[in-house]
Nucleic acid binder design. Structure first.
Lengths: 333, 333
DNA sequence: TTGTATGCGTTATCAG
DNA sequence: CTGATAACGCATACAA
């Protein structure tokens, strides 16, 4: 039983126009057709109020023009940005988005992939955390921030360079006792390299530094312990922290202020992501900015590229530093 | 030509299991089937790696289980929240989201509706600005913040009550010269009632007030003119402003601070929406909080309700006030 | 209950 | 370049 209102089909249009359905199909798909026929078909479409039905096409061609995005949510501003620019990149190429939330649930991540396949999407872009994610082989698949294998293209910001940049910036701004604090220690992914880069730069600079690498959902108090202890270090007090994400930096800034620690006077902090309030203002903390638009564009062009086999398996896009009020940049100039 | 890898169909499963396709269909759709048959079918599905193909179902039943959301973008935190909770509400009911960005483009709003219909979505939820939007009649349609007609359900926060609440709160906090400042004067929609409610409360309170109602994209300097003029009013200086949105409140707070005007010491401000940094902290400005989750739930349950005709045509959901550091609440206690 | 046969709207093939 | 026709995968009416 079709819907309440039965819509006209290509056959109806063909009959009305006095042509064959194949001709109607060609007109609709902008394929070469005699001008007089095209005019007749267009008139019939207009008259009948014909609506193209992509379900028929999907069945016939097994292609939908739809790409699934699997992402935890759109509450976190970074995910919201990513969703935004990926959708815009798809739109530009006349593709649509099928949006799937995994809510940080590893089971759901796999379920959403199944769901996307059931819906015969033309490709999947996934930002996931399940280390054992089952990646289908018969659909174009691109991941963000997670490297699986050389046959699954991974798009990420240059996390290692970003970590180095943070350390060098803090040093340049006068810090002589650094720290990196992050969550997510249980999963090794591209963002883990933020720590590696930071450490490598610290070693190179010969500066004292701490590493506080914790599992997800570690309470802020754990990080605060290190801060309060090291900031009163008699030799070289802690004076610069790189946080794994802007969110953590922001939250910790609140905690520090509660304790009377002033940012950036007492301690300078740099985050990672490039989160801006309302998406347009200056960053909420001094930060290593991810090139979200480029990441989005690259994800889309990669997932739509037909000869996936020849694609590079890991694409790291350049980051940059931006001041956001939690560092003493103005004094350094 | 199907995709590279030809997937097995229900017929293949039926053959493998030694049953008829109808039986397989019933198993897949959880309809009553003899236990022994179900087992055989399940085994065959497992063995062949059968993937249900929703394109066939869509064509056959003209229903996809997909709802389109038409929204400007997901950059603005309010849209991001709405998208988030609508998707969660859909997920809960086993429906999927087809995400369409209109980017505040009136043409695109209409195009996206066409697109959604072409894709045979089961319903459309739309947050739009085009006053002449063409609303299709043969698909479930729900709007957010815009009333079109009694046959098109509109879901909104209680904008009028929110406007009143803002005025009364500012008065309660000691303000004696109020103002409402907003953009969007060119389109009359539900949010316009924020002003109406504010004005009605001001009149009732007998308090002095200004109204600055401007078109979209009005530069902040225009609002600043009124602020700077009225804040030095010799009789009763301006001491409380209600902004139409948190975004405007936030931006204006920045402008005021540049001019040495302190918030909330010199002037208290209240916004509207309930935007929180990273979605979890306290609001970025003192604000009238929209019940985003309830709005999302209501949109979804309404658009999925089959007997749309009996639905109320305007649903206003209750708002509440929340302190966000731009008012002197602590001093009033 | 199970099995069979038909059609949903579109595209592609192939003969004119 | 056009016209007729056969699939695509699934759900369902109908017959058993």
């Amino acid at each position: 039983m079709p819907k309440s209102k039965d819509l006209p089909t290509m056959m109806d249009v063909a009959r009305e126009a006095g042509v064959a359905v194949g001709t109607v199909s060609k007109v609709v798909n902008h394929q070469p057709v005699g001008e007089e026929f095209r005019a007749k078909v267009d008139a019939a479409i207009e008259k009948l109020g014909y609506q193209y039905n992509s379900a028929g096409k999907a069945l016939r061609t097994d292609s939908t023009g739809i790409i699934a995005l699997i992402i935890p949510n759109t509450i976190h501003p970074f995910f919201a940005m990513l969703t935004n620019y990926i959708n815009m990149a798809l739109e530009k190429r006349n593709r649509r988005m099928f949006l799937c939330f995994s809510e940080f649930d590893q089971m759901k991540e796999d379920e959403m992939i199944q769901l996307a396949r059931t819906n015969r999407v033309d490709g999947i872009i996934a930002l996931t955390y399940n280390p054992n994610l089952h990646i289908p082989e018969d659909v174009a698949f691109v991941t963000i921030d997670r490297f699986f294998s050389s046959s699954v293209p991974c798009i990420a910001s240059d996390n290692f360079a970003g970590g180095r940049m943070a350390a060098m910036k803090l040093y340049e701004l006068g810090c002589r006792h650094l720290a990196i604090m992050r969550t997510g220690s249980t999963l090794t992914n591209e963002p883990s390299k933020r720590k590696d880069g930071f450490v490598s730069a610290c070693v190179e600079l010969g500066v004292r530094f701490e590493v506080v690498d914790m599992p997800d959902d570690t309470p802020l108090s754990v990080f605060m312990e290190t801060v309060e202890k090291q900031i009163h270090d008699p030799q070289v007090p802690l004076d610069g922290i790189f946080f794994g994400t802007d969110l953590l930096a922001w939250q910790m800034m609140g905690e520090m202020q509660k304790k009377g620690i002033r940012v950036p006077e007492d301690i300078q902090i740099i985050g990672y992501d490039g989160i801006r309030m309302f998406g347009e203002q200056k960053p909420v903390v001094s930060t290593i900015v991810q090139p979200v638009q480029e990441i989005a564009e690259t994800c889309v062009s990669t997932v739509l590229s037909s000869h996936m086999a020849t694609m590079p398996s890991l694409i790291c896009l350049p980051v940059h530093y931006e001041e956001g009020g939690t560092t003493k940049d103005h004094m350094a100039e």
